[in-house]
């Protein structure tokens, strides 16, 4: 570890702590919530501001210790914030599809005439 000024160390430590705490709370929610549709909200904590704070800590540390601006962590922020909604939406639709196909009663029915699988499941 190279020596950096105290203010930078405090800032880096604080940001790392806040970010990892948010990620931890998100994963705790993942373990605690009762249904899948509640659990799908939990990981977004880690991927939004959890990741942003940890990567901001990394940007500050490498910029101060290397004496030059190190901003390639921004890439990860952009990438994570663009891809997470896509994966979560796909997963949610897959879950909805499976729950309807099995006829689990706790999800709203599909729009009429759009999904024939639901009708087939009702007939059983």
């Amino acid at each position: 570890m190279t020596e950096i000024p105290v203010w930078a160390a405090i800032l880096v430590g604080l940001f790392a702590l806040i970010g990892s705490l948010l990620t931890f709370i998100g994963c705790m929610g993942l373990a605690r919530f009762d249904s899948f549709y509640q659990r799908i909200h939990a990981p977004t904590l880690g991927t939004s501001f959890g990741a942003i704070f940890v990567l901001a800590a990394s940007i500050i540390y490498f910029s101060v210790s290397g004496q030059r601006l190190a901003v390639h962590e921004v890439l990860i922020v952009i990438f994570v914030s663009l891809t997470t909604p896509v994966t979560l939406m796909l997963l949610a639709r897959a879950a909805l599809y499976r729950d309807r196909a099995e006829g689990n009663g706790n999800v709203p029915a599909a729009a009429l005439g759009k999904d024939t699988v639901v009708k087939a499941a009702d007939d059983l």
């Binding site: 998100g26 977004t44 991927t47 914030s81 997470t84 979560l88």
Partner: peptide, 20 residues
């Protein structure tokens, strides 16, 4: 809009019905 709603913790976009 779908990305915004899903990226916000606490709300998730599940399904869009283009007809209605």
């Amino acid at each position: 809009l779908a990305c915004i709603i899903t990226a916000t913790p606490g709300s998730a976009w599940l399904e869009y019905d283009a007809v209605r």
